[in-house]
Computed example of a mutant assay.
Amino acid sequence: MILETLKPQVSAIISNQDLDKNERLLKICELLDKNITYYNWVGFYFRNGEKEELLLGPYVGAPTDHTVIPFGKGICGQVAVSNENFVVPDVAAQDNYIACSITVKAEIVVPIFVNGENIGQIDIDSNTPDPFTELDERFLEFVCAQVATIL
């Protein structure tokens, strides 16, 4: 499975002291986008200080107007409140979905915790209907745990 083979590369990026935090986050986005065919937009959102909103961090994919997302709004905003993974097999079936592109069919968002606090998330959009499995969730949890070590 490609996801397992990417874990050492994620760890190598995280431990690369020659890159700053945002460069490492972008490299992770690039790695996932390049190697997982159904990951069509890969990015990070982070809590904006004490405000109840998320700010877009490094990402790879089509430009988005959604650079600030209020807590509770869309899939990312819901994860900021629930502190739980959110897998959306069909975005068209979601009432509280923020459309980034008409080509997006599915989305997965996994929170990043530092000292037990949800400080951000990784957000993946897919142009493939219902592509995400439990293996994607476990892999992205691994990615988020690695990312948490540099935040």
Rank of each mutant, 00 (worst) to 15 (best):
Q78K: 13
C100V: 06
V79F: 11
E84A: 09
N22V: 03
F46W: 01
F44K: 02
G72W: 03
K21A: 12
Y39L: 01
E134P: 01
T103N: 13
I122S: 09
M1P: 08
E141A: 08
I13A: 10
V79L: 10
L3R: 11
T67L: 08
I108Y: 06
V143G: 06
I98S: 05
P129D: 05
F44D: 00
R47S: 14
T67N: 02
A92D: 14
L19V: 03
F132Y: 15
A106T: 04
V109F: 14
Q146P: 09
L55Q: 14
N40H: 12
I14G: 11
V143Y: 08
P129T: 02
S101Y: 09
I75D: 11
I150H: 08
D33G: 12
T37N: 15
Q146V: 09
F46V: 01
D18N: 15
E134M: 09
T64I: 10
L25G: 04
F142I: 14
L25A: 02
C144L: 12
Y97N: 06
G120S: 14
L6E: 05
G61P: 12
V88F: 07
V60M: 09
D33E: 13
L19E: 13
N115R: 09
D90W: 11
E137S: 11
I119V: 15
F142Q: 14
V79H: 11
I124T: 03
Y39E: 01
V114H: 08
E23H: 10
P131W: 08
A93M: 09
T103L: 14
F44P: 00
D18I: 03
S11P: 03
I112H: 10
E137L: 13
E53W: 00
F132Q: 10
K73I: 04
F132K: 08
R138A: 13
N40F: 04
E117Q: 14
L151H: 13
A12V: 00
K27L: 11
L26E: 14
S126H: 01
V87S: 04
P129G: 00
I69E: 02
V60H: 05
Y39I: 04
E117F: 07
I124N: 04
P131K: 06
G57F: 04
L3C: 08
V87P: 03
V114M: 08
A62H: 07
I28H: 05
T149Y: 07
N48K: 14
E50G: 08
I124A: 05
E84F: 04
Q17N: 13
R24H: 01
D136N: 13
G61Q: 12
L6F: 05
V110Y: 02
Q17R: 11
A92S: 12
G72E: 04
K73E: 07
